[in-house]
Design a binder for these strands. Structure first.
Length: 593
RNA sequence: GGUUCCGUAGCUCAGUUGGACAGAGCAACAGCCUUCUAAGCUGUGGGUCGCGCGUUCGAAUCGCGCCGGAAUCACCA
């Protein structure tokens, strides 16, 4: 079935050619959804067409309306308000649409095969010195959801994680553990591995501060004390030994990282996210050096007297950027040049998305420019999905002030709140504990995920653990609740016979069908903008519309059996779309709640 | 100072390529459970879309300039 918008557009072009001679370009014919407060389904904006008709807006609208109504069976009526021609689509069209397309469970999604574009998406990218927090949650949810959206819109997707498992920060937790750990491990302490290592990272900071204080007490300046504190030197020494492949350091390193990975694994699992491949910086941090040296040879880059290698980005309005240190080692940028190249060579991706916070906007801007300078055509296929920070009502999260919201703790709290809420409302009383727990988990996680995904990724957002994440209004739970209701009605109406709907659709029903008609466009839009919030907000609108319908119209005891089956069909379609839309957000929908 | 991004109701957020009187939720107040799930529905109040100029038949949306906020501009990652 062809998209109505386009059919109308073509009809209008024809009409204008027929009536006034000169046909307008298709893009001049603006078709949009009719606003709720007016009657009609689609609206033609006639202002841009006045130069063809040479008539007043109202007259132009009327003329076109009459022509379209006569000419096309699709259009059953019209009205003109100011410069807007509201067109009413024939009921039969909506019925056919409901009957044919909306029945399909995969409505709106596009098949993927080997010829589909390959999108590589890197997200999560944690450090192995502390547990995941609220900021990582936003990253992970965005990465996962966008992967799903890309898949649904016809792309092959490869999800990759790049773990930052090396560097001075890792050595800090290792050192603190070595000094004060007394052999504590996740098993003996019962602590989650990533949390345990995180504690020692904090411990290091305390040790460091104590030493600074002591040194200042002995008369050193603050700067000097900060630079020369013994523990810091020890950490640096440890990094040197790590880079020299010292067996003892390497062994400790892999043991403690192992604890962290185990911890991450359970957090990822709980969040419902996964990766096709995990890269480790310890294995990739030397990449890119040859590319840079080649660029140097070709004169794209330049060398300073001290031996360091730089890119001059002044012609792009930026500064100079270091690519190799004077001792010849690579920096973060060099590494990203190398991994991008490696991934392109391996996969031949059609695009590569980096889900990384907006604090790295500059980095990715430079990365694309440098790669372009180095002559890689695929540099323009790199996209930085830059997302804003998650702030708390009292401001930014600061680890020093202990205001970091831990991912695991937050998920516990969400599920706990769901349980409390459910008990207060007296729901789920006849369920087994296992079923109850599953629903608490679905609802708690749903609320959290939806709250984060409904916000435009590029914006900073405020997260209030106490108030903002509730279960009423524009929330994941509301949508889940709507779904549970739909499933309930369908269970009860299962035996009602299905005859094809010959019944007249009422206004509310058409509104619902028309909303669902937009779903494929929303998917495409969300996919090209890399923005799950479009889907989230769409689902909320749909659920809200359904809830109103639910209250105003009976479904199982409608007046005629034809009406019943038509309505069952309708809400089944709504259920399918909610299900698939929530799936794209990575949110489960419960059968009952 | 350079670069990038943000500024919409008391609060949290929507607002598709410019279109009709700017929307929702929360919070406040008033109603609705003998009826398919009240995690719901209905109603009331609440706005100079940061400010100004410009483009346009038409601007929250586009351009320029201010004001306010965020991030970043390391031989850290």
């Amino acid at each position: 079935m062809q998209k109505i918008d386009r059919v109308i557009r073509l009809l209008v072009v024809d009409a204008i050619r027929e009536k006034w001679g000169d046909p307008p370009g298709e893009e001049q014919v603006q078709i949009q959804k009719t606003r709720r407060e007016f009657t009609g389904d689609f609206t033609l904006v006639v202002f841009p067409l006045l130069r063809y008709s040479k008539l007043k807006p109202e007259e132009t609208g009327n003329e076109l309306g009459k022509y379209l109504e006569e000419k096309s069976a699709l259009i059953s009526g019209f009205n003109v308000i100011k410069g807007f021609l509201n067109l009413v689509i024939a009921q039969q069209y909506w019925k056919d649409f409901l009957d044919d397309e909306l029945r399909s469970v995969s409505f709106g999604s596009i098949e993927v095969d080997q010829g589909s574009p390959l999108v590589m998406i890197e997200y999560s990218s944690p450090n192995t010195n502390k547990p995941l927090h609220l900021g990582h949650i936003r990253n992970n949810l965005l990465g996962h959801s966008i992967s799903r959206i890309l898949e649904a819109t016809g792309n092959r997707v490869q999800k990759v994680n790049l773990v930052n498992d090396r560097g001075i920060h890792i050595c800090k937790s290792m050192l603190a553990w070595q000094k004060e750990g007394n052999g504590e491990d996740p098993e003996s302490s019962g602590k989650k591995g990533d949390h345990l290592v995180g504690e020692y990272y904090v411990r290091f900071d305390q040790m460091y501060k104590n030493e600074i204080q002591k040194l200042v007490g002995q008369g050193l300046s603050k700067e000097k004390a900060e630079a020369e504190a013994p523990v810091l030197n020890e950490a640096r020494e440890m990094l040197r030994r790590w880079e020299a492949d010292d067996p003892e350091v390497r062994s400790l390193w892999s043991t403690m990282n192992g604890w962290v990975y185990k911890g991450f694994e359970s957090t990822y699992k709980r969040l419902g996210i996964s990766f096709d491949k995990t890269y480790y910086e310890s294995e990739t941090y030397k990449l890119g050096k040859e590319i840079v040296l080649k660029g140097l040879q070709e004169g794209v880059l330049y060398k300073k007297d001290d031996g360091s290698v730089w890119a001059n980005l002044e012609d792009e309005g930026l500064d100079h950027k270091l690519l190799l240190r004077s001792d010849g080692t690579s920096v973060y940028m060099t590494q990203d040049i190398g991994t991008a190249h490696q991934r392109y060579e391996e996969s031949g991706f059609n695009s590569h998305i980096y889900v990384v916070g907006n604090e790295q906007n500059y980095h990715f801007q430079v990365l694309a420019i440098v790669l372009k300078k180095l002559g890689y055509a695929w540099a323009e296929k790199l996209y930085h999905l830059s997302y804003g920070m998650v702030e708390l009502p009292e401001g930014k999260m600061k680890s020093r002030e202990g205001t970091v919201v831990d991912a695991d703790v937050l998920m516990d709290e969400m599920e706990d709140t769901a349980r409390q809420m459910s008990e207060e409302l007296g729901k789920l009383e006849e369920f087994t504990d296992k079923e109850k727990n599953r629903i608490y988990r679905q609802v708690g996680m749903g609320a959290l995920k939806y709250f984060i995904l409904k916000v435009d990724p590029k914006k900073n957002m405020t997260f209030d653990p106490r108030e903002s994440v509730d279960f009423n209004g524009n929330t994941g739970s509301f949508i889940q609740y709507t779904y549970a209701r739909i499933r309930s009605v369908l269970r009860k109406g299962k035996e009602k016979q299905k005859s094809t709907g010959k019944e007249k659709l009422n206004e509310k029903e058409i509104t619902l069908i028309r909303m669902m008609y937009d779903y494929p466009d929303i998917l495409v839009e969300a996919s090209s903008m890399l923005n799950p919030s479009l889907i989230a907000n769409f689902l909320y609108e749909l659920a809200k519309e359904f809830n109103q319908f639910y209250h105003d119209h009976s479904i199982l005891s409608a007046e005629t059996s034809g009406q019943v089956s038509q309505r069952l069909l309708l809400i089944e379609a709504i259920g399918n779309i909610i299900h698939s839309g929530m799936d794209l957000l990575g949110i489960e929908v419960p059968e009952r709640m």
